[in-house]
Structure formats: C-alpha cells, structure tokens
Design a protein around this nucleic acid. Structure first.
Lengths: 225, 225
DNA sequence: TATAAAAGTTAGACTAGTCTAACAAATATT
DNA sequence: AATATTTGTTAGACTAGTCTAACTTTTATA
C-alpha cells in the first residue's frame, strides 16, 4: 500500500510523460515544479520509488514509470476522474470546483468503493473536463476529442468540456442551450464571416470561431468508440 | 487546519466522553486503547491539543474536549455518518462495510462537499447504524432510539439499525420484510410465550423477544422529533 | 496506612517527508 | 574546446507521529 505522497509522485510522472504522449521521461526539476516541491525532495523519493520498482531512474538521468507504476498511476487518475464526474453530475459542483476536492478523494483506498461509484455513474467514459476515464482494467479509450471549431459540417457531436470558464462564456453557452453532454449538429460554416451554424435540441444558432474554439467535443460520426 | 491524526484524537475523545454521555472525561490509556496506539504517543498529542485549546488536559489528569474541540469532533462525526449513509443508500454497501471506508472519507476537507452531500441525501437524521447525524450547525437531535422489544403495543416505529449482523439474522429479517427505514406497527404482545406480533407493510408476523431485541427502532409515537 | 498495581509521563530513538545550502554532472553557448 | 548555465545530487537539519524502556504519580487494597 502506497502513501498519499508516493501516489502523488506517480500521478505527476504519469501526467508529465504518458498523459500527453509527447515524451516518455521527465526530469527531477520538472517533477518538482509539477508537485510544488524542491528538486532535492523529489530526488529522495525517486530513489525510493525506484527501489519499489515503480519507476525507472538512474543518477543524473530522467525518470519514467514501470509497468507496475503506470498501473497505479492510471488507477489514481481513474479515481480522480470518477470523483470529478460524481461531484459534477450528482452533487452539482461546477466545472472548476471539482478538481480540488477530487485531489483528496482520489486517495481513498477501496476497490469496492470505486467500482460501485463507477457503476452508480453508469460507467462514464469522460469526466467534466472532457478527459477520458480509464476503465476498471486500466484501459484508456482515447476519444477523438477536438474543439467545435474543428468539427466537420454535417457531423453530430457531444459537448465534453470547455476551455474557458469565465462567467461571460458560460452564460453565452447557457443561452444557446449548450451544457455538458449536450448533442450538437454542425449544420453549416459560412465562408464569408466564418460563423458556424449549429443545431442544439432542434434550435439553430450561429456562433463565432472564437466561441467554438472553447467548446470541447467528441464526434459521434468520426472515430467511433 | 488539523491533520488526519489530530482529527482522529478529537473524534476518539468525543466518542469516549460525550457520545455515550455517561461520563465527560477520558484517561490517556483509555484513549490509547480506542486509537490503537501506545499511551506514550497519546500523551504527546494531548499536550499538543491542549496547546491548540482543543482539549482540557492537566498532567496526570483526565482529558475532555473544549467547546472548540467538540465542534470539530462533531463535524467529523457528521461527515463520517453522512458518508456511511451515502455508501449504504446510493452505492449499495452493506451495513458492516460502510464504516471502514467512511473512516477515510470523513477526513476530506471541503465544507461545500459535505453540505452538498447532505442535500443530496435529503438531510438524513440517522445513519445506517441507527446513529444520529449531527446537522450543519453541529446540533445532534437525540432520537428516542430503543429496541423493538421495548416498543409499546399500538405504537408505530421505524427500523434504524440492527445489533446483530449475522447472515441468519439478516435473512430472517428479510423474510418478514424488515429492512432499514421500514415502518413497523406493534400489534400485540403475547403474555403466554412473550412473542411480539407486528405488522410490516400490511403483513403480520410474530417474532421472538430475542429477535426483537436486535432490531433498533425510533418510535414515531413516543418522543417526537 | 503502607504497599502493590494501575495509570500516566519522560527521554530517547526511529521513519517519512520536507527543507536549505553546497556541490557535481550534463548541456548549451560562445 | 572552454566556460557558463542548467540540472541534478548530497549532506545535514527539521517536524509530525510513532515506538520502547524507564520512571513517577495516583489509586486501590491488604
């Protein structure tokens, strides 16, 4: 059983390396920054985690997760995102409030709890920020996530998140009927002024590229899942 | 902000002193037993908590909670019992599984979370073990809790807990339609063989004193709340 | 009431996790 | 290639929480 602290290091390493996929190793300073700690502190822990075979690490080298370490990290991410979904969907938290509380909840140790929560939420694939939730086996189904701006004309899609959390933005979204999990159909794109014509719940609206860029969606008609 | 550890000491002291109400102070050894720690360890913490004005403590004396300490302890108990209720009612945990997980969840720090959870559960007054849940103001409404054996003939009551958790017992309870929150009416008590005649959901059953003694109820007709 | 038993305390040690300050290695830049 | 900069490491110190072993005070009892 790992401590909260150890779990946080694994999660940080996961996010720095595998999560965004553009590289597979992270440096000590980089991790310290991510965790809000000093490099010296991180250094000690890296040795400890290597000892436990959870990370690959060599003196003066970069670090990466072992298979075992990755498994644990993915599990923490799964818990984090399931809790976020619970807070948002069931308790009515707003998109920007869920993260902080989920940071605490993700460390609760009970396989049964998380499995029941998953079931209770009806096995969600996406959290309120539009990020994929790993399933019970630790598999992460990568969705063809993109902004509404990038969606093709004629395609149907679903809102899975937003990039802007300002009141102005959210109020605007609300006015045209956009909320999490809302289905949208892209009807047309005007070449003249770049406005995008969408249909939400049978209601048509025209939105600016700037607005569309801040809506994160999953396409129902592109890469099926 | 208190640490998990400090919170646990306050909770233990609350349970040893105020909870059952038969005394108002607890000794160092007694607390050590409750917490599963050594008296020496507890001793150190008592000094620390006294320093923080959360408990009353004098060298070689017994300890008790200050007003401030009690407030915090009650809040932890509130969280614990709300989580137990959530686990039982929403996630389908059994009565004896909830405690362990709630021990962890009770330390999550977020006023908003607990208030929303309370609302989501519709402001429950009793947890799955039949214990009172303090409200948001820290008030504990003491219910006229007793066993079904003690209930008066003609009175209507509600199941709030059980004392026995054996499969035999629970199966029997299930057979006559008894479950948590179930309403019961006591129809008669046989003088001859002490059997108690009850009505559950319009269905009549006769139960033994031994069985009745293990059902915890709140009377609807005695002390109103 | 003297003494044995129980309860409580103190001192010193250990672990986990953090820090600062000084140092070493690797990388980038002239 | 020499040197400056960045990155990473080590050593030593500190805090919180725990322990054991030895000691002291209180309480119970013979």
């Amino acid at each position: 059983m790992l401590s909260f602290t150890e779990e946080n290091y694994l999660k940080a390493l996961f996010q720095l390396t595998l999560e965004d996929g553009y590289k597979k190793e992270a440096g000590t300073n980089e991790m310290a920054l991510q965790l809000g700690l000093k490099p010296a502190t991180v250094n000690d822990m890296l040795k400890k985690l290597k000892e436990k075979k959870l990370i690959h690490y060599e003196r003066y080298g970069k670090s990466s997760l072992t298979k075992e370490g990755k498994k644990i990290a993915v599990d923490i991410v799964r818990k984090h995102r399931l809790w976020e979904t619970f807070l948002f969907e069931k308790l009515g938290f707003s998109w920007d409030e869920v993260h902080e509380v989920a940071e605490q909840l993700e460390h609760i140790q009970s396989k049964k709890l998380i499995d029941k929560l998953d079931q209770y939420l009806n096995y969600p694939a996406i959290d309120p920020h539009g990020d994929s939730i790993p399933n019970a086996k630790g598999e992460i189904i990568t969705l063809s996530k993109k902004t509404l701006l990038e969606e093709e004309v004629g395609h149907q899609c679903k809102v899975v998140g937003v990039k802007d959390n300002s009141t102005t933005f959210l109020k605007y979204a609300d006015r045209i009927g956009l909320s999490l999990n809302q289905s949208i159909k892209v009807k047309a794109k005007q070449e003249y002024d770049d406005l995008i014509e969408i249909e939400v719940n049978g209601k048509r609206s025209s939105i600016s590229p700037k607005f569309a860029e801040n809506i994160i969606i999953v396409c129902n008609d592109c890469g099926k899942r």
